[in-house]
Amino acid sequence: MQLPTIQENNDLQQAVDAKELYQSLGLNTAHWAKWHARNIDENPFATRGLDYQTFTQWVRGNETRNYLLSIEFAKKLAMQVRTEMGERIRNYFLDCERKASQPVVALPDFTNPAIAARAWADEYQEKQIAQEQLAIAAPKAAALDTLSHAKGSLGVRETAKAVGIPEREFVRRCLDKSKPLSSRFLYRDDKGRLNAHAHRIKQGFMTQKVASYEGKDGYDVATIQVKFTAAGVAHIAKLMQNKPVNHLRVLEAV
């Protein structure tokens, strides 16, 4: 069973899709409506906007309600399921919280000329190594140019352009269900929206943010932004054959 994906959220900071959590816990899908009503809507210890957000989805032509849960609230719900998977998900959330609470490493004292010079030299060396790795990874100068000008990450369309593959073909290969789950990058949710696989986010190859706005019906509507980090673009570039631009293809996603 796949662990639920942790997403970045403006209000909840980090959030989990409630339906994805429910499925990861191995609970009966027929009881979803009763479960979210009892554990979320009618939970006297859960506060909307602080512990969860509500949004609507279309599933097989029917409108259904779903939620984004804070990590703390999702952990509490997982603890109520006294199964091996419930314990595993609980520990997963605890580990995420532990990493998030780790202290930030202090910056060097740049008032000391020797330390400042060493720090500058280390930074320069790291940049040189990064540039060499990108030069090896990216098959074409066009892809390198796109990547070097990217501010942090690239969207799906920009990533496809960077590696020289038409966007539709790029998405198809990232979704390819003929490959093992560990070799895929993207999947579609019930509404057909592209989502990043959790293991790719953990590898630092992708990011996923959820933004929300209030719809006409008063419910929050969520939009998903999937992006590839510079490391992710470089990793995909390594999987390409050295062919002319627009003729590159993915050899194998590993």
Results as ranks from 00 to 15, higher is better:
M1K: 13
P4E: 01
P4I: 03
E8G: 06
Y22M: 00
S24E: 00
H31I: 01
K34T: 04
K34G: 04
W35H: 11
A37D: 07
N43S: 11
P44T: 12
Y52G: 06
T54I: 08
T54R: 15
G61A: 09
G61N: 10
R65N: 07
L69N: 11
L69E: 06
S70R: 11
I71N: 08
I71K: 14
E72G: 05
K76F: 10
L77G: 12
Q80N: 09
R82F: 03
E87V: 02
R88Y: 00
I89Q: 01
Y92N: 06
L94W: 05
K99R: 15
Q102D: 02
P103I: 13
V104F: 05
V105C: 06
L107R: 15
F110C: 06
T111M: 10
N112G: 04
A114T: 08
A114H: 12
A117P: 00
E123C: 04
I129H: 15
I136K: 14
A137F: 08
K140P: 00
A141L: 07
L147H: 08
S148Y: 12
A150N: 11
S153C: 07
V156Q: 07
T159N: 08
T159C: 10
R168C: 04
E169Q: 14
R173K: 15
C174G: 12
D176T: 12
S178K: 15
P180Y: 15
S182N: 10
Y187I: 04
R188Q: 13
G192H: 12
G192W: 11
K202Y: 07
K202W: 05
K202C: 02
Q203W: 13
F205D: 05
Q208G: 02
V210K: 13
K216L: 02
D217W: 09
Y219M: 11
Y219F: 14
D220K: 14
I224A: 00
I224E: 00
V226S: 07
V226H: 10
K227Q: 07
F228A: 05
A230D: 03
G232W: 09
I236E: 05
Q241D: 03
Q241V: 01
V245I: 13
N246A: 08
H247G: 08
A253N: 07
